[in-house]
């Protein structure tokens, strides 16, 4: 009697431990942002104006709690990734909040995403170098930005 009970508990624990991870992954894959990114962009212009991104970079460069900045924008989306000097990382949450508020005030009409995460930084930088190499459709770019945005919002 007891044997069966223990075996059942062991199997259930193992199964639930693994299954959980999977459902989380699935959920994050079909997030709402993904859908919005696809239906949002209706290629307005062929030339990709990176003015807002450049202004955001220039403005953040002046801060002493930001070491390196990369930004990309497309349509109403602005993606800013930056690195905080290591000894200031203690105040990471505060710095992130400050910068997000500042950017939102600077670009009122934009959907601003900012992150100090290294992965987001890598991805944004990657996207930027890719943009310089080949011409990008605005819709593709928006989808790519949406993908990075979704990644930055993931938790756990």
């Amino acid at each position: 009697m007891k044997r069966w009970w223990l075996a059942a508990v062991a199997v259930w624990l193992a199964a639930s431990g693994c299954a959980k991870e999977e459902t989380e992954q699935k959920q994050s894959l079909q997030g709402a942002d993904w859908m919005r990114a696809q239906t949002f962009g209706t290629a307005k212009g062929a030339v990709l104006d990176q003015g807002p991104a450049e202004r955001a970079v220039a403005s953040l460069r002046q801060r002493d709690d930001v070491r390196e900045v990369v930004a990309v924008n497309s349509g109403e989306r602005l993606l800013v990734a930056y690195q905080i000097p290591h000894l200031k990382r203690w105040k990471r949450k505060k710095i992130e909040k400050e910068i997000a508020e500042r950017l939102r005030a600077m670009f009122p009409g934009y959907d601003v995403v900012s992150s100090s995460d290294l992965k987001i930084f890598w991805k944004t930088k990657d996207l930027k170098t890719k943009m310089e190499k080949k011409r990008w459709d605005e819709r593709d770019l928006q989808r790519e930005i949406g993908r990075i945005e979704k990644l930055s919002k993931e938790q756990t």
Binding site: K119, I120, E154, Q155
Partner: peptide
């Protein structure tokens, strides 16, 4: 995990 897969500092 961060470099080769889509994990951020938090999710890694």
């Amino acid at each position: 995990y961060m470099y080769f897969f889509d994990f951020t500092e938090q999710t890694a």
